[in-house]
């Protein structure tokens, strides 16, 4: 499926949803971090939007890799290398394989690359607590229909976790009881992507 999708509307959808939720993301980050995750993601999405036409002209795999590079060079902070690596490695893996059947494999490869970049895994209270289970879901059915609701629940599950990575880890016990902002933005973005893939219907 993903190969059939136009990247321009996906970027626009992500950008709109991040803008709408920027303040909430900042607030989540304020509770256990430095309060800028929404602003950071917004900066990255706007950079993608500005390059949207150029990206659409590229083959999807290449366009994802290039989008990742743009995120790395504009977001900064922790989110930049992480989201950037996800797309760069997804693009790279997709250009090495072909066909939608291999998408779950490519995605799994990309998520593992993110984990390596962040030296982190599941249960560390990061966006990986959305990405790893999502990767497993995709591997199981390679469908995008069911995920939006599920990823929201995944983000919710980070509330109870104690952070072992990122700024929140500096808080120790005090990080418990708050949703991880990166997990929240990840859930949001996955929902937006799925919505676009499924023809703009809200899941």
């Amino acid at each position: 499926m993903p190969v059939l999708v136009r990247i321009g509307p996906v970027i626009a959808a992500c950008c709109a949803d991040i803008a709408r939720h920027a303040d909430r993301l900042n607030r989540l980050d304020g509770a256990i971090g430095d309060g800028d995750h929404g602003t950071n993601m917004q900066r990255g999405c706007e950079a993608l939007l500005a390059e949207s036409q150029r990206l659409e002209a590229l083959p999807l795999a290449q366009s994802l890799a290039e989008a990742g590079r743009i995120l790395v060079m504009t977001i900064g902070g922790a989110a930049g290398p992480l989201y950037g690596t996800l797309l760069m490695e997804l693009g790279r893996a997709m250009s090495e394989t072909s066909g939608t059947d291999d998408f779950p494999t490519a995605f799994a490869h990309a998520v593992n690359a993110v984990a390596r970049r962040g030296k982190s895994g599941t249960g560390d209270k990061t966006l990986l607590d959305v990405l790893f289970p999502l990767s497993d879901l995709l591997a199981a059915d390679n469908k995008f229909e069911t995920t939006p609701a599920k990823v929201a629940a995944l983000a919710e599950m980070t509330v109870a976790m104690r952070a072992r990575r990122g700024r929140a880890s500096f808080l120790g016990e005090r990080s418990i009881g708050h949703m991880d902002p990166g997990a929240a933005s990840c859930a949001l973005l996955v929902a937006a992507v799925c919505r676009e893939i499924n023809g703009g219907r809200r899941a």
Binding site: N26, R27, D34, G35, D36, T39, R167
Partner: peptide, 25 residues
């Protein structure tokens, strides 16, 4: 933080925050 016009944490009149870093966390 200038973008959010919010203090990253708000202390009461008689509180202090011990063990802070330099990012407002």
């Amino acid at each position: 933080v200038p973008q959010t016009t919010r203090e990253t944490f708000v202390l009461g009149e008689t509180e202090m925050e011990v063990g802070v870093g330099i990012h407002g966390e």
